[in-house]
Structures are given as structure tokens and as C-alpha cells.
Simulated assay, not measured.
Amino acid sequence: MDNFRTPTARGHKRTAVSIDVTVNGVLNFVDGRITDLSEGGARIGGASMPARSRCEIHYGGQVTYAVVMWSEYDRMGVRFPYELAHGALYNALKIARDASMVEPAQIFHSNRPTMFGRRGLS
């Protein structure tokens, strides 16, 4: 029997955002920008902390706790131990999702019947 893990679908839809935050690690505060957010976690650009470390994300006067799942030189992915269900960061996620649901205006849409050419030849 193979011991390979099969990839599983994420439990939450990720949403592209641009939210400036401050991340508090054990020894330092780092400014960063959340570029990808869901109820279960986020990708933060401009900030990097060691994988498996715990941190706090400060936004809108509130704190959201997180665990660093992966880290690169200038970005990291965090998981929230408690799903976002309220608060400033959750409200920002809802606003971003609502904005992405708005369909683009149909500028060239008209109610004229379909016809060929300027004179309406069929």
C-alpha cells in the first residue's frame, strides 16, 4: 500500500485582496500585506517568519492569531487556528468577495434585433 498523501481540496475559497497589516512575532513587529485571504488562512507578502511559529496579525484595531505554515524570503502563508467568523479581517474578506461578485458592465449590449449590415439585410 502506498503511503502517498492525496491532495485534498481546501475547505475555504481563497480571495485576492490587498490589506496592509502588522504581524507580531515573538521578537518583532513586521509590516506586510495580505494578498490572499480565506476564513482558514492568508498569504502575507513583505513579511517572513519561521515555519511553525505563532504570530498575531494586527488589522483594524483587532488581533487575529495565526500559525506560519510556510515561509519564503519575502512572503509567508499562515493558517488561522480559529476560522474567521467576525471582526475587522473577516469584514474585509466579505467586502472583497462582494466586490468580486459584481459583474462588469455590458457596455455594448443593446436591445436591437440582430441584423446584417447598416440596412438590416438578412
Rank of each mutant, 00 (worst) to 15 (best):
M1P: 08
D2W: 06
N3P: 00
N3V: 13
F4P: 00
R5E: 06
P7W: 02
P7R: 02
T8I: 03
T8G: 03
T8Q: 06
A9N: 10
A9Y: 01
A9E: 13
A9F: 08
R10S: 04
K13G: 03
K13D: 00
R14V: 00
R14I: 03
T15K: 02
T15F: 04
T15W: 01
V17K: 01
V17I: 07
S18W: 03
I19M: 10
I19H: 10
D20W: 08
V21N: 02
V23S: 05
N24H: 13
G25P: 07
L27R: 14
L27P: 11
L27Y: 15
L27G: 10
N28W: 12
N28D: 11
F29L: 09
V30I: 13
D31L: 12
G32P: 05
R33V: 08
I34Q: 00
T35A: 09
T35G: 10
S38M: 10
G40V: 09
G40A: 10
A42I: 12
A42K: 00
I44C: 09
I44F: 11
G45M: 12
G46R: 10
G46H: 14
M49P: 02
M49N: 02
A51D: 12
A51M: 12
S53K: 02
S53Y: 03
C55M: 15
C55H: 03
C55R: 02
E56N: 15
I57R: 15
Y59P: 04
Y59W: 05
Y59K: 06
G60N: 13
G61D: 15
G61W: 12
A66Y: 09
A66T: 04
V67K: 06
V67H: 02
V67E: 12
M69A: 15
M69L: 08
W70A: 07
W70G: 09
W70F: 13
Y73W: 08
R75Y: 11
R75S: 15
M76E: 01
G77I: 06
G77A: 13
V78Y: 00
R79E: 11
P81K: 01
Y82I: 12
E83D: 15
A88Y: 00
A88D: 01
A88T: 11
L89C: 08
Y90C: 01
N91H: 10
A92K: 00
A92F: 02
K94C: 03
I95P: 01
I95T: 10
R97D: 02
D98Q: 15
D98F: 12
D98N: 07
A99C: 12
V102L: 13
I107L: 10
H109T: 00
H109F: 07
S110G: 09
S110F: 01
S110N: 14
N111A: 09
P113L: 05
M115L: 05
F116T: 11
F116D: 06
G117R: 01
G117Y: 04
G117L: 14
R119E: 15
G120A: 00
